[in-house]
């Protein structure tokens, strides 16, 4: 992977800078920001020196809450795609190179998860089991990995026919060795690009669940803040504007990152549904 290529991609640079900002925000908020649950007498107040982003219907400071929400979004956006990348790569490589049962299972699961939309699965799971943040991340990982797996599988199948792999095979190298030594490194670009796009989706779905009221109620979520803002759109726009900008910027950053990586690593952009 050439770092110079990456730094030449404006999208990658802009995406990384925004994302680093969000990450720093999340860390700083955990260390230094005030209590996001602290209520006050000043309810539904517009942006002011004391409350730069205004306050909500319980007099809570929107700035503090927006900063605090960064960690929630990032946790799901990082954990779910990474778990999916690990499982998807392992299953995709073994399925594509070795074939057999793993391959059959992968294909069936892929079909299955394509038939029931991811958001619907997450919504129903959250409704029945409570929308704990890690549960949401886990459900998303479970719906993400088959798509990673399918891409990796396709790569592995085409790599299987390549001369260096056949050479290695004819010299008696075991499959595991060929996969880990030769194939793993070659499927990294596809996995990296797919994973960064999934991160954007994960952030969006977490916010969507929280918006619908089935998210984790013990953490501050930008989606939940937007749901709280809904009844006050006429009198307290700031309640919707600031968490919305934060959420949109984070997702945009992840998509920029994915675009930049796809360009730099020469991975063909694919429409994801």
């Amino acid at each position: 992977m050439s770092l110079r290529h990456l730094l030449h991609s404006r999208r990658f640079v802009v995406g990384s800078v925004i994302l680093l900002g969000v990450l720093t925000t999340a860390i700083l908020a955990a260390v230094a920001a005030g209590d996001p649950f602290q209520t006050s007498e000043t309810i539904l107040a517009g942006p002011s020196r004391a409350h730069p982003f205004g306050t909500d219907e319980l007099g809570r400071d929107i700035l503090t809450r927006t900063l605090d929400g960064a960690a929630t979004t990032l946790k799901v956006a990082i954990v779910a795609p990474l778990v999916a990348a690990a499982i998807g790569t392992a299953v995709g490589l073994s399925g594509g190179y070795v074939g057999g049962l793993a391959d059959e299972i992968l294909l069936k699961l892929m079909e299955f998860t394509l038939v029931v939309p991811r958001f619907l699965i997450a919504l129903v799971a959250a409704a029945f089991f409570g929308g704990h943040l890690w549960l949401v991340a886990l459900v998303l990982a479970a719906t993400f990995w088959p798509s990673t797996g399918r891409l990796v599988r396709a790569e592995a199948i085409s790599l299987r026919e390549r001369e260096f792999v056949e050479a290695s095979n004819s010299m008696g190298a075991p499959s595991f060795w060929i996969i880990s030594r030769h194939l793993l490194g070659l499927v990294v670009p596809v996995v990296v690009v797919n994973t960064s796009f999934q991160a954007g989706q994960a952030a969006l779905i977490e916010a969507g669940l929280a918006f619908l009221g089935v998210g984790d109620r013990n953490v501050i979520s930008w989606g939940a803040m937007l749901a709280e803002a809904q009844p006050y759109l006429g009198i307290a726009r700031w309640m919707s504007v600031f968490p919305g900008i934060a959420l949109a910027l984070t997702i945009l950053a992840l998509n920029l990152l994915g675009d930049g990586l796809a360009d730099a690593l020469h991975v063909r952009w694919r429409a994801r549904i």
Binding site: G200, A229, Q230, V241, G244, A248, N255
Partner: peptide
């Protein structure tokens, strides 16, 4: 990258 529910609110 815009969350639909936020776009709707705006």
């Amino acid at each position: 990258s815009l969350p639909v529910f936020w776009l709707g609110q705006l």
